[in-house]
Design a protein around this nucleic acid. Structure first.
Lengths: 340, 340
DNA sequence: CTGAAAGCGCTAACAC
DNA sequence: GTGTTAGCGCTTTCAG
């Protein structure tokens, strides 16, 4: 390659990346011609190995579906803006896969790691990741400080509370939360907010645990309330669940929002497009993602001119008692037909 | 590391991967202790560089949403079974990103590439990828033989034809196809099947081009037919579109499936859970993915005992005139409430 | 069975 | 401005 261009090997390397070194026009042209001719493509492994930096960031997700797809796209977008590449992996909800992906990423010596809703506990995570690789977590509530640079958490508690208030205002005399037991931490947060909300306005309520929304018991409970003629308000775990619930209620002849009002969470596209459209809690992806990337990049390019992505414009909330390295992103209630 | 274990550097390498070399128990234990102690984690770049093989496969997708999420999970699963790692990238529908991701993957010297619905044309693709990296394509219809090892295509044409027949059987006297113009090739295939179907049974039909299903024109056309009292059958581009369409029709007070019957494509989860549930064309993910991975691995481990994943059990179809390196996966119609 | 040595393809000093 | 050289952390002959 260097020989083909008739220059030295270092010169080639110079023109190929670091143009701050003065170079003769002629030389540059010669190298670029050779690149075309030989169909040269840099070997990134060799380069990374040598420079001890990969310019690659990893993102491990519990799924690719629904909200996570949008999230991944948003992450990719801002990471690219900073000249890094983002590798996204989904663990399909399986802890083994989560571990496998993180291992692969660490073996490949990514410059940093983002993990969304880790299944591993804090202690295991700390030991597993070690000191070398900076990490930012999403939805890791009350984790010790020594495991990651920080955590960017959604304020599900605040959101759920807003939902309760909204439902109460719209005249609901009974409130249900359909609790998705598999989603441990994130479900927990919703629960906290739901409790706080119902206690605040003293409305009778029930928490209905479920695995996949198919349990008949849910519908029995609902029927109990509806037949008393009382307007019922339901908070679902997310819009996907809200959607399925509404469909099944419609199949049983219930009137939404007449007899039952439903609110979902995440503002997924299904919430917007369903009929009736579903009131939901919107996530400010931009806010979430920008904060996380800044956390990581500040660490990586310490002091370096991190083109100011200006986090000013983003609002955050500070739940009492939350650790300093955690930031919380507020959720905004979007009223739609399902609670009219 | 070698020093810590008190053995030579090559011995460490030996115990760490290739156990076919005879090793003293003692040695093995010493090395493994050292691994624990030093918190050693193999540098995959160095290893790959040296062995000239990465055991990594790349998958580039147009999106992470809907069907693609399931697809990515399925791919990941079978690739893992063969001891490779799969890196999945989404181009968000943007050709620049598709190129960027492929470039990154090629620079990282992945052992093989899977591309789903490439935006690049065959000629560009061939030049871009070059000879070095074997590639398998999804939904690349009528591509020349010299660009990829092969293509695994969905038989959208056959599927659309089945849908037309189904709608006709259910008494539809007019048929619409809502054509998604942005999805060039894949929309084209559906069109072929739709045309073939309607010509076969001589039913009046219309093709309605759309970008995002929001055009009022669609609803005017529909109203025209419905007010004649004729049952209308609609084939949508996919289940997402079918879902949105149904919602909007419901909002306008139409009765599904009474006045209008709708069929979607892909059998996404929304089709199953909507009310009314949506008749759809199911994709055999297993079939698709197994064929593709086998194509690639046959090439990579030439002659090697490719644990027979037995493709026998999978059905394929052979549309007339399709090239030999293409295989076509049939789609199965799942009747649901939307066409009852 | 174990160890020494030659790369893999690049980057980064540092001479020229 | 350009070339030489010493690694980066592994794998892989090939001798002991």
């Amino acid at each position: 390659m260097a020989r083909a261009a008739g220059v030295s090997i270092a010169t080639v390397s110079n023109v190929l990346n670091r143009r701050n070194v003065p170079l003769a026009e002629e030389t540059i042209r010669k190298v670029e011609d050779a690149v075309q001719l030989l169909g040269y493509r840099r070997n990134e492994m060799a380069a990374s190995l040598s420079r001890k930096k990969t310019y690659e960031l990893g993102l491990v997700l519990p799924h690719f579906n629904g909200y996570f797809a949008d999230f991944a796209h948003a992450m990719q977008d801002v990471v690219h803006q900073f000249g890094y590449h983002l590798s996204v992996y989904s663990s399909t909800g399986k802890p083994e896969l989560e571990k496998r992906h993180m291992e692969t990423l660490l073996r490949r010596r990514v410059d940093g790691l983002f993990c969304h809703g880790l299944a591993m506990n804090p202690e295991t995570t700390r030991k597993f990741v070690g000191e070398g690789t900076p990490m930012v977590l999403f939805n890791a509530y009350n984790w010790p400080e020594n495991v990651a640079l920080g955590a960017v958490n959604l304020d599900f508690a605040g959101g759920a509370e807003k939902a309760v208030l909204h439902l109460a205002e719209r005249g609901c005399r009974q409130l249900f939360y359909i609790s998705r037991v598999r989603a441990r931490t994130t479900n927990q947060q919703r629960l906290v907010g739901f409790q706080r909300g119902v206690e605040g306005c003293g409305i009778p309520h029930r928490i209905i645990p479920t695995q996949g929304m198919y349990e008949d018991e849910i519908f029995e409970s609902i029927e109990d309330v509806v037949k008393q003629g009382e307007p019922l308000g339901i908070l679902a775990f997310d819009d996907g669940d809200a959607f399925m619930l509404i469909s099944r209620l419609q199949a049983r002849g219930y009137d939404i929002p007449g007899q039952i009002k439903v609110v979902g969470i995440n503002n997924q596209s299904v919430a917007q497009h369903n009929w009736p459209s579903i009131t939901s809690l919107d996530i400010d992806l931009d806010n979430q993602v920008s904060h996380a990337v800044c956390m990581l990049l500040q660490h990586l390019e310490e002091g370096a001119a991190l083109r100011n992505i200006s986090l000013e414009r983003f609002e955050t909330v500070k739940p009492t008692g939350s650790p300093a390295h955690e930031i919380h992103i507020p959720m905004r209630l979007i009223p739609r037909m399902s609670t009219e």
